[in-house]
């Protein structure tokens, strides 16, 4: 129950921040959504088992938590960190180009990075002897 409330709340605020817009809000919202997702996965293991999943010959604790969601979440956290860092770099790059960061600058970055060029756009340019 409490996990559900927490997840719902984090997801709601995270979405609100992301949709609301602005580079900083985007990153913060992304972080919150990440937390929400991690909690969802952890809760899938069943929050009624709350002991650490360590063994030593036999299970150390009766009520050991499900180790599989924990493994997922561990890598998810690190990857979220990586993506956050990448988002920050994009923001920093646009911030370098303008002192104020607004929504449009994100758009500007997008159009810079998004070439519409076909690498071989001129078919008439190459044939030797004109026969093909």
């Amino acid at each position: 129950m409490t996990l559900a409330i927490a997840v719902g709340f984090l997801a709601a605020v995270g979405t609100w921040l992301v949709v609301r817009g602005g580079a900083v809000r985007l990153i913060l919202g992304f972080i919150l959504l990440g937390h929400a997702a991690n909690l969802i996965i952890i809760s899938a293991g069943g929050a009624f088992r709350r002991e650490a999943p360590l063994v030593d010959g036999q299970l150390l604790a009766e009520n050991a938590a499900d180790p599989l969601p924990q493994a997922f979440v561990l890598t998810a956290i690190v990857i979220t960190f990586g993506v956050t860092v990448y988002l920050l770099s994009l923001v920093a790059r646009t911030a370098k180009q303008s002192t104020k960061v607004e929504d449009e600058t994100i758009g500007r970055v997008e159009s810079e990075i998004d070439p519409a060029t076909d690498p071989a756009s001129d078919p008439a340019s190459d044939e030797q002897g004109g026969s093909s």
Partner: peptide
């Protein structure tokens, strides 16, 4: 959108987790 996402995910967690024994 915030309310939708929040309510749906919260309800989903409440409905789908914590209701079965260890897998």
């Amino acid at each position: 959108s915030a309310i939708v996402v929040g309510v749906v995910s919260g309800l989903a967690v409440w409905a789908f987790t914590g209701r079965r024994e260890a897998s």
